[in-house]
Design a protein around this nucleic acid. Structure first.
Lengths: 194, 194
DNA sequence: TTACAAAAACTAATCGTATTAGTTATAATA
DNA sequence: TATTATAACTAATACGATTAGTTTTTGTAA
């Protein structure tokens, strides 16, 4: 029926590589098109524009991260699973700095597809936290605590915003310890009340 | 000697208002110039370009936030001061969503002026944490924990990334409780060792 | 009071990328 | 082999950032 040169998956996966190489602020359609050996307008046969591509990259990143987190928690449970999931998140984020920026910035548009991409991730987190002796509502709060810390800390690392020369790895480890210990006290308090 | 129409402070303060209104992704020099009643090239007599303006806005935001945090901890100490400082950070961030995005994205360029702007903020945090029974190194780690959580959580709130309908205010309160309780266990452990 | 000079503001022009309009080429299918 | 859907192309447009060069203003000093 027509030429079978590009397809949207090629554009997205190549875009993901390029955005990690040059950063979110420098990625252009022109660059992606040249990389794929076509002229810029040809991309418009597969995407509606730069904004949609960034949305697609955001979804691509979250789906990949979900896979990594799911793999990381196989065979572990409870607080060990929380720890493993946090490390998987952090490692994916710092391995993919450009893509992670896209994931953060384009997470704002709330539509069905966005929900679908991130809901899988949250259901993993929810299953982990639900195995603890904590109310469902507090599980949801805790997921927000973890999301907040993980997104913020990863962003700070990627931006090289920590001026102090002390170890970033130790900061991350201690932070996770702090949060887990904090959650444990919550569990005890709630256990006492019930 | 010359006309005294604009100065850089007018551009920055007006830019800060506008970026909160239209968002980081939509702010343009053209918009700021029109708002100030001049043509776009006139801005170049005061700034080197859009990038420098964003850097200046980033510094402006961090300095303002530092003031807010310092005021918030007057008269309180220990964990109450940590709590007050965290709330001051969060409230400033959600009151200034566009500017806060600038603060996050342009925090990457590490020069003397950047350091100066954020070092004041960190010295406040360091004074607070130093009053606890925690080693200096761990104080620095804890500051990173707090920065990570506060930046990430605020970003999630500003982007409306929390799909779940449960209260964001309660999530923040519980998160701070978790982190403070986590820090307390750290303090006890270290106290026991010493 | 008036001429000067520094600096700000202006107009005109350039550049780069996104996007759109309209044309050409390809490949599956009838 | 002819058709046709569709992808890729060329050409053109739009818009903002930036630069070059000109004009205007205003404090200072003759």
């Amino acid at each position: 029926m027509a030429r079978n040169g590009l397809d949207i998956n090629m554009i997205i996966s190549r875009g993901a590589q390029l955005v990690n190489e040059v950063g979110l602020e420098n990625i252009t359609l022109k660059m992606i098109a040249e990389d794929l050996g076509v002229k810029t307008p040809s991309l418009y046969n597969h995407i509606t524009g730069l904004e949609e591509l960034k949305m697609q990259l955001m979804l691509y990143g979250w789906k990949q991260m979900e896979q990594r987190i799911m793999q990381s928690v196989i065979g572990v449970s409870g607080y060990d699973a929380i720890r493993a999931g946090c490390y998987a998140f952090y490692e994916y984020a710092i391995e993919n700095p450009g893509l992670f920026n896209v994931m953060l910035w384009y997470n704002k548009f709330q539509n069905e597809e966005t929900m679908e991409a991130t809901s899988g991730l949250f259901s993993v987190l929810f299953k982990i936290t639900s195995s603890l002796n904590i109310s469902e509502e507090n599980c949801n709060h805790i997921i927000r605590t973890l999301r907040g810390f993980l997104e913020g800390f990863s962003l700070l690392v990627n931006n090289e915003s920590f001026g102090n020369p002390i170890s970033i790895a130790e900061s991350f480890e201690l932070s996770i310890n702090i949060i887990i210990e904090g959650i444990k006290t919550l569990e005890e308090i709630q256990g006492g009340i019930e």
